[in-house]
Computed example of a mutant assay.
Amino acid sequence: MITCFLKYTIDAQKIVEFETYGKMWIDLVNKYGGLHHGYLLPHEGANNIGYASFSFPSLADYEVYRNRMVSGPDCKKALDYAVQTKCIISYERSFMKPVFSGNKDKAKLPV
């Protein structure tokens, strides 16, 4: 499994628009075979930083999604919305391998 982690710099005056954008992508990522883990909007602290993450079974599956979304009209609508509202200033994208289970099943932990 591979998780795409996004850090957004957003316009602090357009949090509502960024939330609308995020809700569009949650449905789209799930529709195109991924598992969206949601968006995190500013609440306390920095008022212009947001996060999102979603997973695909593999990087190859993510690439299939990226190729399919280019031609998806709903994807274009979401991208156009961000451009029109100017709610996103910039973003950073990283790919990570998630760890979802702890050591409770291990008899002895490493020292």
Rank of each mutant, 00 (worst) to 15 (best):
T3N: 09
F5I: 12
L6R: 12
K7E: 12
Y8Q: 03
Y8V: 04
D11P: 00
D11G: 03
A12G: 07
Q13R: 05
Q13G: 06
Q13D: 10
K14A: 03
I15F: 01
I15D: 04
I15H: 05
V16P: 04
E17Y: 01
E19N: 05
T20G: 00
Y21N: 00
K23E: 09
K23H: 10
M24E: 01
W25K: 01
W25G: 00
D27N: 04
D27W: 01
L28G: 01
L28A: 02
V29W: 00
N30F: 07
N30Y: 07
K31V: 02
G33Q: 06
G34R: 01
G34D: 03
L35E: 13
H36E: 08
G38V: 08
Y39L: 08
Y39D: 02
Y39G: 01
L40Y: 07
L40Q: 10
H43R: 07
H43T: 09
E44M: 04
E44F: 08
A46M: 04
N47K: 10
I49G: 04
G50S: 10
A52L: 03
A52D: 11
S53H: 15
S55L: 03
D61Q: 05
Y62T: 04
E63G: 02
R68Y: 08
V70D: 07
V70G: 05
V70P: 00
V70C: 04
G72K: 05
P73F: 03
D74Y: 08
K76Q: 13
K76R: 07
L79I: 13
D80G: 05
Y81H: 10
A82V: 08
V83D: 15
T85Y: 08
T85M: 12
C87T: 09
I88M: 12
I88Y: 07
I89Q: 07
S90T: 14
R93P: 08
M96S: 14
V99L: 11
V99A: 14
V99P: 10
F100L: 15
F100H: 15
S101W: 13
K104I: 14
K104Q: 12
K104E: 15
K104R: 15
D105P: 05
K106N: 12
A107W: 11
A107R: 12
K108Y: 14
P110I: 05
P110L: 09
